[in-house]
Design a protein around this nucleic acid. Structure first.
Lengths: 209, 209, 209, 209
DNA sequence: GATGAATGAGGATTCATTCAT
DNA sequence: GATGAATGAATCCTCATTCAT
C-alpha cells in the first residue's frame, strides 16, 4: 500500500519583517525558476541563489524542497478556489447561459495568466502528498460549481461539475502546450464545452439552458 | 529562451533478430518501470537490469535515457493516431451521433487501458524536445478528427478537433487521477462533452447533429 | 601525529547572578539532551533552544560546542573524584575487606545514577583534547585509591588502582549496555573483582585481605 | 520505543577479482582512517579517495557509510570469536590456572594489536543496529568462556563470563587510552583479575583453582 | 558486440558559527 | 548584553554515462 505521509510544510510562518521578506523571496525565486524551466529545473541551491540568500537560510523556513513546492501549490489552489467562489457568488441569480461564462472566466484565469507555472505546479502536485489545504481548495472549487449547477436543477451535479472542471483544464492546458494562448478565445470555447456538455447531459430537449 | 535541441533517438533501428529482441527488451523494461513507479522511477541501470542486459548494451541501442523515453512516447502517439484513423475510417459514412462514440472510444482507449503508463509518458513528453514523429502522430490524430468533422460541415474543424481531443484527455485523466476508472461511464461522458460542444459551437438551432 | 590543541573552555566564568543562571541553563540543557539522545543528538542550536536562550547568548559564554562538552566532562570527573576522595577518607582506618566496598560504591555511583549521560560524556571525552582539570580529576581518583592501597602495603599501588578503576568501569558499562542495570548486584560483582584482583596480585597466600 | 531497523549490509558480495579488490580497498581505507582519526574522521568521500576509487564505486558495494562500518565491526567480532573459540578448545583439558591465561591472551589480542581501530569500531558498534552476525559472534565469545567455566564447576558461569569479558575490556581499553600499551604486562594483569574474580566469587576456600 | 565496474558532477540537507539589529 | 537570521563549508548519496576487458 502507498503511504500517506504528512504533507511537507514550511518550518515556521515568519511574522517579522526581515523573515517574512526572506520567506517570500524563496517562494518568488522558486516561482521564477518553475516558470522558466519547469519542475525539473528547480534545485534548492538554485532557489537560494536566485533568492539572493544562502541555502542555510532557505532551510530555516522550509524543511525540504517539497515544502517549497507544496506551499506554492497550496497558494495556487487557494487563489483559484477564492476566485471561483467569488464568481459563483456573483453568478448566483443569473441564468445558466450567463453564469457559465463567469465561472469559466474564473476557472481559466490561473492558466491564462501563468500557463507555464501552473503546468509545473500541477506536475509537482501530482507527486506530492495531498495537503488538507489543497484538498479543501479543490473541494471548494468543486462545491462552488456544484451549488451553481444544483440550483438550476442539473441532475448529478457532482459528476457534472467534475467533468466541466476537467474539460476546462484539458482545453486550457492544450492551448498552453500548443503555444497559442489567446485566452479570450479559449474562454469562449470552454463555454461552448460546458454549456454543450450540460445540454447533452440533460437531453437536448431540456430548456433549462 | 528554451532550447530546441534535436530530439533524442535510438542510435539505430536494429534489423537482425537478436538485436531487435534486445532493443525491444529495453523498451518493455522501461514500460514496466514507468507503469509501476512513474517517470521518476526510471533509471538507465534499472532499465538494463530489468531487461536482463548490461548498461553497456543499453547504450549500444539508445544514446541516452531520453532516447528511450522518446521512443516510447513516439510509439504511444503512433498507436493512438492509428487507432483513431482507423475509427475515423469506419465512421466515415455514419451520422455524427454515431460517429462520435466510435471516435471517442478510440481516443479513450490508450488512457483506459494504460492509465499509469500514459500519464508517465505524457509527463516525459512535456520535458522532451518534440520529435517529428510525435508531431506527425499528433497531427494524424487531429486530421482524422478534422476530416470527420469537416465532412459534416462543422466550421473551423481544426479548432473543434483540438478542443474535443483536449476535453477528452482532460476528463479521462481526471478520472484516472481520482481513481474512479469506470471507463464505460467515462466514454459516455466524453460523448456528451463532444456532441454538446459541437452543438453549442454551431448554434443550438443546427440540426446537423 | 595527533594535534594537541588547547582544551576548549568557557569564555569566562560568570559571577553575576543572571549570567550565572544562563551559564548553568546551557549546561543543564546540554545534559538533558545528552541523556535523551546521546552525543550525536547535541547541536548548539538545540542546546540554546532547550535552555531558553538564543544561540548568540550561548556563544557569549561558550566559544564552541566543544567547550560545553568539555565543561560537562570536567564537572563529571571532578564530582567523581570528590566522591571517591571522600569515600577514601572514610575508609581510611578500615580493613581492606570493608574499605573496598565503600570505594566501589563511590566508583559506581556516577555510572549507576546517570548511565546514558556518563556514556555520552565518556564518548565526548575521547574526542576532546584532555584538559588539565580532567587530568587532575582522574589523577585525584587514582590517588585516592592509590593511597588506600598503599596504606595497606599493596605493592605498585598505582597500577593496581588503575586496574581496579578500569575493571569497575568495564563491568559497569557492560551492564549498562546490556540493559540489566541492577546496580546492587553490580556493586557486589565489582567487589569480587577488586578484592580478587588484589589477592591474586599479592599471591594467594597473603593475608592482607 | 526504539526502532530496530535492519542492519546495513554490503550491497553485494563481489566474487570477481577486480570487484573483490575494490571491495577490500574500501574496507582497508576505512580501517586506516579509523586508526588514524577515530570514528569522527570517517567520511565517504575520504574513504573513496583513500581507497583510490570514486565515491560512486564505493556506493556500488556499500549502500551507506554505516554499511562499511557494520562490515568492519562484523569482521572484528568474527575474528575475535574465532580466536577465542580456538583458545577455548585448546584450553579444554587444562586446569583453570593454565586455561585462563590462554583465554585472556585470545581476549586481549584484538585490543593489543589494533587498539585505536578497536576503540573506533566499538564506538561505531554502539550506534549501529546490531547485526545477527555480530550478535552471533558475541554469543560465541561468551559461550566459549561459559563452557570453559562451567566445565570446572563455576556457579552461574554466564554472569561470570560476562564479568570477565567486561573486566578484560575495561583494563585493556584503559591501558590503550593511557597510551601505555605493554600488552605482555596487560595480559598478566587481566589474568590476575580473572582468576581473582573467580576465586572471590566462589569463596576463598574453594580449591577449584 | 557485450559486460559491468568505474566515474564524478550534481543535488539535498545539516549545523557550527557570525554579526547586524 | 541579547537576539535569531544568515552563512556556507561539509557531508551523504544518486545516476547518467564511459570504457577497459
Amino acid at each position: 500500500m502507498t503511504q500517506h505521509p504528512d504533507p511537507p510544510r514550511p518550518r515556521k510562518i515568519p511574522t517579522q519583517a526581515r523573515s517574512r521578506a526572506t520567506f517570500e523571496a524563496v517562494l518568488e525565486a522558486a516561482t521564477r525558476i518553475l516558470q522558466a524551466g519547469g519542475l525539473s529545473a528547480i534545485t534548492t541551491n538554485l532557489v537560494a541563489e536566485t533568492a539572493g540568500i544562502s541555502v542555510g537560510s532557505l532551510y530555516q523556513y522550509f524543511p525540504s524542497k517539497e515544502a517549497i513546492l507544496s506551499e506554492l501549490v497550496t497558494r495556487m489552489r487557494l487563489s483559484m478556489s477564492e476566485r471561483l467562489a467569488d464568481a459563483s457568488a456573483r453568478a448566483q441569480e443569473l441564468p445558466l447561459r450567463q453564469a457559465i461564462p463567469m465561472l469559466m472566466e474564473a476557472a481559466v484565469h490561473q492558466y491564462a495568466t501563468q500557463p507555464a507555472l501552473t503546468a509545473a505546479l500541477e506536475a509537482a502536485e501530482a507527486q506530492l502528498p495531498r495537503s488538507p489545504e489543497v484538498r479543501a481548495g479543490r473541494r471548494k472549487v468543486r462545491d462552488a460549481l456544484v451549488a451553481c449547477l444544483d440550483r438550476r436543477g442539473i441532475p448529478d451535479p457532482q459528476e457534472a461539475a467534475l467533468d466541466i472542471a476537467a474539460m476546462t483544464r484539458g482545453i486550457v492546458m492544450a492551448s498552453v502546450y500548443s503555444g497559442k494562448a489567446d485566452f479570450e478565445l479559449v474562454r469562449k470555447r470552454i463555454e461552448w464545452a460546458a454549456l454543450g456538455y450540460l445540454a447533452e447531459r440533460m437531453g437536448r430537449s431540456s430548456d433549462l439552458l
